[in-house]
């Protein structure tokens, strides 16, 4: 009733934690069995280790949060040798997210990462708003995104998903460009650029000043974008942005997603993912649906 099959990702259920919100799984593995998850999107890996931005790195907003972590991670080699080794005991597919400053960084990281037997697919983060160089520019110019996708596809042994930025005016154009360049799937959406100012200090709360907005506040933006993109591409979409419960997952499927990722909600409730997975069958029964896939794209009449 819940199993879904996407390129490289043979999932028991359509729910995975989103990149950057679950580290490499170890912490949440203390709360529940990671085998319950449909897949795991691990924290963005870069060629070299990165320390990230100064603190404060997070600020709360109405029904959401801003973050400017700055892609802190121990670097691809360390991740292959340690963090991914720690995940060998579980059989949940891994979607390895990668980021970089320039095309060569992505290619290097993608090649290494895709050769790991523990990695089932790559997710190209071309949309991180929190790094000064690269990052967002890859995500806002379709030609550049397409070029990067092609280069990474050429070296990757596993399917490649491109994670799109919502900070663009033509999301469909962007999606089509990376599809043509060979992307096997899309992840959407990454965070929206935002800022909060502290009334006492009269300065931005985040040390980085601006950050990426996530959480329930961005859900309608994600739904609209997936609704439009899914009607214009032939590759599957991993939907994300503000998912908190089973109803949200169903809404993403109705919009056109083939699987979903849960980010910020893990911070609110560490058991969020397994709880959603547990609730889904009952919801589907109530809707008279035998398999969740039947809901995909129903809002625009795919079925």
């Amino acid at each position: 009733m819940l199993n879904v099959k996407l390129p490289g990702l043979d999932m028991k259920n359509p729910v995975m934690p989103a990149s950057g919100c679950f580290s490499f799984g170890k912490e949440y593995g203390d709360f529940f069995d990671l085998n319950l998850l449909g897949a795991i999107a691990i924290k963005s890996a870069t060629k070299e280790a990165r320390f990230g931005n100064p603190t404060p790195r997070v600020a709360e907003t109405t029904a959401g949060m801003l973050n400017a972590i700055g892609l802190q991670n121990p670097g691809v080699e360390h991740i292959l040798d340690h963090e991914l080794k720690d995940l060998e005991g579980i059989d949940t597919p891994i979607l390895a997210n990668i980021a970089g400053k320039q095309v060569d960084d992505y290619v290097y990281t993608a090649e290494k990462m895709s050769q790991s037997p523990r990695v089932n697919a790559l997710e190209l983060n071309i949309s991180c708003p929190n790094v000064k160089e690269g990052g967002i520019t890859f995500g806002t110019v379709p030609e550049i995104a397409a070029h990067l996708t092609e280069k990474v596809k050429a070296v990757s042994d596993v399917p490649v998903y491109v994670k799109l930025s919502p900070n663009v005016s033509d999301i469909v154009g962007m999606a089509k460009a990376v599809e043509e360049a060979g992307a096997d799937g899309l992840s959407m959406i990454n965070t929206l650029m935002g800022m909060r100012i502290n009334l006492k200090t009269q300065k931005p709360i985040l040390a980085n000043k601006a950050g990426g907005l996530s959480g329930p506040a961005i859900k309608p933006v994600a739904i609209r974008m997936i609704y439009e993109v899914s009607q214009n591409v032939n590759i599957p979409i991993i939907g994300m942005g503000g998912i908190q419960d089973a109803d949200d997952v169903i809404e993403f499927f109705l919009a056109g997603a083939s699987a979903v990722a849960v980010g910020t909600a893990n911070f609110v409730d560490p058991f969020c993912c397994p709880n959603i997975i547990k609730e889904l069958p009952e919801k589907l029964k109530q809707m008279n649906v035998d398999h969740i896939d039947e809901l995909r794209g129903r809002s625009w009449g795919r079925c």
Partner: peptide, 27 residues
Amino acid sequence: EERMGCAVGACMACVCHTVDEDDEKGY
């Protein structure tokens, strides 16, 4: 004290540098 997201070590919001520059992790 530092602003936190998850509070369980996953989100990397509340990190600080180590004094020892040769520390393996540095944070």
